[in-house]
Nucleic acid binder design. Sequence first.
DNA 1: TATATTTACTACCAATATGATAGGATTAGT
DNA 2: ACTAATCCTATCATATTGGTAGTAAATATA
Lengths: 149, 149
Amino acid sequence: MLKLSTKGRYAARALLELALRQSAEPVLLREIAKSQEMSEKYLERIMSAMVSAGYAQSLTGRHGGFILSKRPSEITLAQVLAAVEGPVNPVPCVGNPKSCGRSSTCAARDVWTRLKESVTSVLDSVTLEDLVHMHHDKQNAPGGTMYYI
Amino acid sequence: MLKLSTKGRYAARALLELALRQSAEPVLLREIAKSQEMSEKYLERIMSAMVSAGYAQSLTGRHGGFILSKRPSEITLAQVLAAVEGPVNPVPCVGNPKSCGRSSTCAARDVWTRLKESVTSVLDSVTLEDLVHMHHDKQNAPGGTMYYI
DNA sequence: TATATTTACTACCAATATGATAGGATTAGT
DNA sequence: ACTAATCCTATCATATTGGTAGTAAATATA
């Protein structure tokens, strides 16, 4: 239950890839796809969403590719995921009380609200910069549990 | 993103209904469906899952219906949801590291793990008894924000 | 025992979301 | 002009979701 689609996962990993190579040349779609083991065509659509949302910039033509359009510390995981999967909404009535006539008296709804807040606080708290740090830590000390708490 | 299906929502509300009427006669499927505004046939399948999972008991024939098979304080929301929607797993690799060859070095995976833990802690902490209390509070003081924190 | 009431079980169906793929149009460096 | 890239639109197979239909089995009551 409460699954994230591959779209969100791929978007997160693709932008992490860009963040890792931040200072260098634009990164080819093909390279991101290869390094992250995704279909090029599928990733193309995801990157297009990243560009529209303002987190990545595309350079067409020769020596083109993608770069981040903000600093990694300024892009949160919540933003990236929302760009391809929409806002966090475990149930419709949390974002839109009118979607269910029972909203005002429904005890379950209060729990769904708490759930949303809990999820949001986790995703809001992680930036691409954090992911980069976590990645480097993992390279140096694979199996380290520092971030598992 | 991270949506709960109606199956989970309906299951939660149906069991809350049983918890609210706990001391009385078995509750008819028809009555739960009517009171909670769900399709009878759809709810039938959900209740069947509740019986299989051991949270409700069914009585067939005349004066039949459904009752809780445990005390409301012994049934958590996490359990009810898991019975119809499976375990909390935002991404496959959190429950099963082998589902992705990158698991051991993937920074994103650490975040998905945190996300799962966060969700689980919310859902594990709410029992049907809590929902009953919340329901009564809402009846007495509609609009109260006590549980929103 | 006959009957009415109620859940149990099996199969089916329509709509939507998901995870892709194909192919041409457009942009820009050389 | 040529070539290496992204951009855009359409298409498609599969799975999930939400729901329906019909029959079988169980049981209280007359």
